[in-house]
Amino acid sequence: MAIDLEKILRPIDSPIPEFPPKLMTLAGGEEMVIRQVGREEIPDLLPHVAPLMHVERDFYNIVASRVYAELLGFYTHRVQDEYVLVAQIDGELAAIVNGRRVSAEVGMSYHTLALRRGLRVGAHAFAAKMEYHIDILKQKEVLIVAESPIGFRRWMIEYKLEKRFDIPHELGGVPSWALTSELYDKARSSLVVGRRPVPEHLLAKAKAGITAPSDPPTPPIDLLAATRSLGDSTATALIEQRNKLGGS
């Protein structure tokens, strides 16, 4: 009986081509690999997403909470045709992007979660997601929304997205924006980068295990931290410490 019910609850995923892994050099000279992960790797991602649910800055809390739910939904077969791509630097988790195939022609972009800030890590991961929809899945357009002002500026302005306000987006039912294949072609040369194939050893390193981000976003400091200086998580606390210890 329970098995039968599960059959009803579990959607049947459409067969879709995989995202071929790619490699890019970041401004710091580090090599970043972007690749698709299957259900079996989701438990390795969740522990790195969970702490961000409590980072109440730049909308990390809402984005991380939703990503967590989407990853769990994917893992337990509760979302149809979802995919997850990860960006890794030397094995370390740098970004997670996900989305869904709505139909042969339309894709639904879910989230872009950067666990390493700066150096365009999030932008590269987002571009890979668009590449997957338009180039690999051959879809005509991808529906997008932004939850944070950073996201809005990045996606809506850099890619000059079109309005699809008549279509509610799956994230919150808000009006959608669309990246059409024509807009993608215009952005391709300047925003979409990466090399294939990824050298064997780098891909092996990435697949060997998703390691924790070394410098993930942290909760904002207490508003009164300036006057209660030890609560200041910025480097000012270092001098404070030095003063306390009576050093120079």
Binding site: M24, T25, L26, A27, G28, G29, E30, G118, L119, R120, H124, S190, L191, V192, V193, G194, R195
Partner: peptide
């Protein structure tokens, strides 16, 4: 900025024009 950048990353790599 605690971002150690390299000439390779911001000028020479194939992705430099997008990174920088």
């Amino acid at each position: 900025l605690h971002e150690p950048i390299t000439i390779e990353g911001i000028l020479d790599s194939p992705e430099a024009a997008t990174n920088n």
